Amino acid sequence: MRRTLIDGVSRLLCATAVAATFGGAVRADEPFDLEGLIAAARKEKPITVYDSTGKIVEMAKNFAKKYGLSAEGSKVKVSEQIEMIIREARANNVQGDVSIVSDAPAAVAQLIPQGFAESWLPPDLSAKIPSEYQDPLTVVTSANVWAYNTQIFAKCPVSNIWELTEPKWKGRVAMQDPLGKASYVDWFNQMAKHGDDKVAQAYKEYFGKDLNTKEDSATAAWVKAIAANGPLLTDADAAAAEAVGAPGQSEPFMGLISSAKFRDNADKGMKLGLCKGLKPWPGWLYPGVGLITKGTDSPNAAKLFVHYIMTEEGIAPQAIDGKMSTNKDVRLPADEPSGIGKVLDQLLPYAMTTSLDDWDTRETWQDFWRMNYKK
């Protein structure tokens, strides 16, 4: 899907979305009154919150109990979230009041500038949230990481992502299909934009020579090589995690999965291990943008929910899955199963500054993958 034309007015709207107000709520330059917001929220209709993780159900229940109001969490795939927000707004029939959108490029290119949703930054928490995560408000950053089977291997069997392009791993890498998972092609673009030198350096470290390629970037050369090596493509992290971590295998897959799947080690007896130290990165981060839909009947309750999930208590159900709050005061729990907290400095961060470029190049990267993928 190509992004629609974003003219100067739309970009200005996007850039100033954080400052937007609605429902008579406080402006960013006015004193913030949390108790006043709670009182106003209790006078409004129940809210519905969309997110692509089922943990949103628990989060909404906790929120409702804490503040004595009604809220419902609904697990909705991000592509469906975006369609629902647009359709509901156009029909003037808003059902979802808050949405945690794990597709930042779509949020920045479509939802905000076209007036379907707004970002709101809790004024009392602004000093705790890095500037790059404020406009629009990024609630969490989630990790996709390379994983291996700990029952078979004492440590990660590869030390470099280029090793996965070798014949030894042909057909033995599991990952979600980039043609169906937009964040994967965004990852390709983020690598090319912000880490291409590291991809090239990793090639030299592994093969002992400089990369010589006709492709536009070292990243493109790696994407072409991994696609040609016939990875197992899945429609969900669960299937990729199963291919990697199911016990009793003799030749398990390497895989790229969400850090959330490591909870299956305890829940399902899986044998997933995190590839710490993998060059140039053992994984990458992608953002979850918190948006309030335009036309909500409960603007104060929606704001209160956004404020709540920016606290340690509010984000706790997702933090246990390795999803990291952008509030610097909030830490991952000590018993988070993947161990992602120990390798955060090794991951490729997501740069919101190029999210529109990610949107622009999605079709190009998808076509590139399609042309080079071989079963």
Rank of each mutant, 00 (worst) to 15 (best):
D103P: 08
D103M: 11
D103I: 02
A104L: 13
A104G: 07
P105D: 11
A106H: 01
A106T: 01
A107E: 02
A107T: 12
V108C: 13
A109D: 08
A109E: 13
A109C: 12
Q110N: 08
Q110M: 11
Q110T: 09
Q110H: 09
I112N: 03
I112H: 01
P113L: 00
P113H: 00
G115S: 06
G115R: 03
G115Q: 07
F116N: 10
F116E: 05
F116S: 02
F116Q: 07
A117R: 02
A117Y: 01
E118R: 12
E118P: 00
E118W: 09
W120S: 11
L121N: 00
P122T: 02
P123Q: 10
P123T: 04
P123R: 07
P123S: 09
D124N: 14
D124L: 13
D124F: 06
L125I: 08
S126D: 11
S126I: 08
S126L: 02
S126N: 04
A127H: 12
A127Q: 15
K128A: 10
K128Y: 04
I129P: 04
P130T: 06
P130Q: 09
P130M: 13
S131P: 01
E132I: 07
E132N: 11
Y133N: 12
Y133M: 05
Q134A: 10
D135C: 15
D135M: 15
P136T: 10
P136F: 04
L137A: 00
L137G: 05
T138Q: 11
V140C: 09
V140Q: 15
T141A: 03
T141R: 13
S142I: 10
A143C: 13
A143L: 03
